[in-house]
């Protein structure tokens, strides 16, 4: 084989947008497999996948919004607001399905509010959603008095469908995670709307100049990010049938980290949903692997920090090579 052919193969691999994240994931899994014989087992895979799913569903929405050039720091709060609202409504005797839909609409309205503040008042989304993150967390704590809210009803079927055990020890949240990944990958890469999302994040002025409604795209993406955060919160609610007002804290940052590990550009216009999927899974692997090798829990965040920076360095090099 000549070197030209190898170059071609390498070029082709680098073009797969999740190449960096995927390589990193394999490497880290390899290390943990060597360090602990309990790591590479079905049970452990399932448990990693379950915890990754809740983060991952959020990360997909966050990534989708980041590609359009905006941030949402309030997703961690929405993660708790939606199920808490659902629990409060369902505890009055309303069917869980209706409580769920109402909560999703509420989450969507929070996204709409974020989107309108950012596009109409022209405030950087980082600041606007920092505000709504603090506001809604405050409301949660005030309403609940700081205590968890339990669901008292009998109706567990619906909650199980969201976050309960299904087969082989898998939880339903894993299905939602995979489904959301597939759906949003298709929307992003294969539809006109996805094309506009890339354009809006890549260069909002150009997008406007070819006739794309930039504000509309951004607002819709804010709504998607919030609804997915609410859905993720509900899958956790489905697991515990109880919701803590502090649930979801720091998830917004882990979601951004997942997206960035997966190759998304902080400035918008570049990234992939499959990348965010791998990023979230990688964070789950790290959490589980560190526990299994006996590292104190505190090390978890430190490691994510290191992985984040390393992955950005590599992703940047790869992007420069294939996209300029």
């Amino acid at each position: 084989m000549n070197s030209g052919r190898w170059k071609k193969i390498l070029d082709r691999m680098l073009r797969v947008r999740v190449f960096g994240a995927f390589t990193g994931l394999i490497l880290i899994m390899l290390i943990f497999t060597i360090l602990s014989d309990k790591f590479f087992t079905w049970d452990n895979f399932i448990s990693i996948f379950t915890t990754s799913s809740e983060l991952g569903i959020i990360a997909i929405g966050t990534c989708f919004l980041m590609i359009a050039g905006e941030f949402d720091l309030s997703v961690g709060s929405v993660f708790a607001v939606a199920p808490m609202l659902g629990a409060l409504i369902a505890n009055t005797g309303v069917p869980m399905a209706i409580a769920f839909i109402t909560s999703m609409v509420a989450a969507g309205l929070i996204g709409l509010l974020n989107g309108i503040i950012v596009t109409e008042a022209k405030i950087p989304s980082f600041i606007a959603t920092l505000g709504s993150m603090m506001f809604f967390r405050g409301v949660l704590l005030a309403v609940s008095g700081g205590f968890p809210i339990d669901y008292f009803g009998e109706e567990t079927g619906f909650l199980n469908a969201l976050g309960g055990k299904i087969f082989f020890g898998m939880r339903a949240s894993g299905i939602w995670f995979v489904l959301a990944t597939i759906i949003f990958s298709i929307i992003l890469n294969q539809t006109r709307y996805g094309n506009h999302v890339f354009a809006v994040g890549g260069n909002a002025g150009t997008a406007k100049a070819v006739g794309i409604n930039v504000k509309r795209v951004k607002i819709i993406n804010f709504i998607i990010a919030a609804v997915l955060a609410g859905l993720a919160g509900f899958t956790m609610f489905g697991r515990f049938h109880s919701i803590d007002p502090t649930a979801g804290q720091l998830l917004e940052l882990e979601a951004i980290a997942s997206s960035v590990i997966g190759g998304a550009l902080l400035t918008g216009g570049y990234g992939s949903i499959a990348g965010a999927f791998i990023g979230a899974f990688l964070i789950g692997v790290l959490r589980s692997g560190l526990i299994l090798v006996g590292a104190p829990a505190y090390w978890y965040q430190a490691f994510i920090g290191v992985i984040l920076v390393i992955s950005v360095i590599f992703n940047t090099k790869i992007r420069k090579a294939v996209a300029g």
Binding site: F198, G202, G211, I212, G269
Partner: peptide, 15 residues
């Protein structure tokens, strides 16, 4: 004129 990080054909047909 163009969105730098998007492909030639996607730019050509943008919108």
């Amino acid at each position: 004129a163009l969105v730098n990080l998007m492909s030639i054909s996607r730019n050509f047909f943008l919108g």
